[in-house]
Simulated assay, not measured.
Amino acid sequence: MDRRSPFAIMLKSRRHERRLSQLDLAMEAGISQRHLSFLESGRSKPGRDVAARLARALRLAPELANAFMAEAGFAPIFPARAITDAAMAPVRSAAAQVLQGHMPYPAVLVDAVGDVLDANVAFDAALSLFGDPAELWDRTHEGRQQNLYRLTLHPAGTAAALVNFGDVARATLQRMAREGQAGPRLAALIKEIVGWGTIDPAWASPGWGPSPAPIFAERYRIGHQMLSIFAVTTRLGTAMDAIAGGLRVESYFPADHRTQKVMERLER
């Protein structure tokens, strides 16, 4: 049984993920290797300044940096404003322009864990291909916050029509596993998804298998139609806020002419 503090365990784990030696990290953070060794073994506790320097040296994303500081017993480094906060108005405006500018194709604004914050009209229209959108969300979420990962991978969601589900699920879990290193909320969602029993748990390991292609098509059979789409991610936030730092727009494009015509007809 590991008797080290959660901070000591987290520190060593993140250092390994960054593939840094103790000496490399110590030099980057401006502390001695001996001090770092004592921190990782739990023999010493960090001061706030040392913990903050280690978070910066490890290049932790804002949400994870805050969790790192919490494990060390200190207040967060980064604020975590809600998307509705007045200070976030410029970000909301930028997101709205990106969503509207992608018409007539679907686009959705999500946070670091994939929770849906906004979407354009074409996204809602595309969901209608799978039945009533409200019922689709209810089946997959049961009243919880709408989440793009859950919608895509849940057996009762769009996955039911996904012809290449294995390829998409594997690539999605690989992405989530890598980004799960940016915070505990996404790690918890990965655990939930794996618990459904429709996905190989090995897919959730960051180092499992070859890296997925940068762009690949999701192929859906809807009635007698085969539709293919691919997504491009646009990052919107800054590293100065734990929420804004994880905001992104997922913009969907038709992968063939048939899908293009269907999407354009839906928007009209």
Rank of each mutant, 00 (worst) to 15 (best):
A134H: 09
A202I: 06
G223I: 04
L151Q: 02
I222S: 03
F253N: 08
N147E: 10
P184F: 03
G195K: 09
G195V: 06
R248M: 15
F216W: 13
A156G: 03
D200P: 02
L227R: 05
L153N: 01
S128F: 01
D167G: 14
V116Q: 08
L151K: 00
A159V: 07
V113H: 04
L129T: 02
S228K: 12
I243R: 06
T172S: 15
I229N: 06
T233P: 04
F165D: 06
L151M: 12
H154P: 00
A177F: 09
A112D: 12
L227N: 02
D167I: 11
E218K: 15
L127V: 01
A126S: 13
P201L: 14
R144F: 04
P206W: 00
L153M: 11
I243K: 03
P210M: 11
T172E: 12
G143P: 04
P210S: 15
F130W: 11
G195N: 08
L109P: 01
V108A: 08
T158Q: 04
V194M: 08
L151D: 02
L227K: 03
L129N: 07
T198C: 13
G131F: 05
G223D: 05
A126P: 00
R185C: 00
P201Q: 12
M226W: 06
L186T: 00
D124F: 08
A231C: 15
T152N: 14
G237P: 00
A202C: 09
A160S: 04
L189R: 00
A182S: 14
H224Y: 06
A171F: 02
G157R: 11
A204N: 04
T198H: 13
D118T: 10
F253C: 03
L148I: 13
W208C: 12
L227G: 02
A188S: 13
D111E: 11
L117T: 08
L186K: 00
K191S: 13
S128H: 02
A188K: 14
P201F: 09
T172H: 04
E218Q: 14
I229K: 11
D118L: 09
N120R: 09
D115C: 12
S128P: 02
A182Y: 06
L247C: 00
Q146T: 04
P201S: 12
L109N: 01
P206T: 00
H224V: 12
V194A: 10
A177W: 05
D124L: 13
F230M: 09
A125D: 13
R170M: 13
G195W: 06
W137K: 05
G245P: 03
L127Y: 02
D111W: 07
L117S: 10
P133M: 08
A119D: 03
I190S: 04
N120K: 10
A177D: 10
E250V: 11
E135N: 10
K191E: 15
T172W: 05
R170I: 07
E142N: 11
A231L: 07
L127E: 01
G237D: 01
W137F: 14
A169K: 06
Q225G: 02
D132T: 08
Q225F: 03
L151Y: 01
A119P: 01
W208R: 10
R219V: 14
L247S: 01
P201G: 11
A188G: 13
V232T: 15
G237Y: 00
G114P: 08
D124N: 13
D124V: 13
L129D: 06
R144C: 04
Y220L: 06
I229R: 12
P184V: 09
V110C: 12
G131Y: 08
A202R: 15
R219K: 14
A119Y: 14
A242Y: 00
H141Q: 05
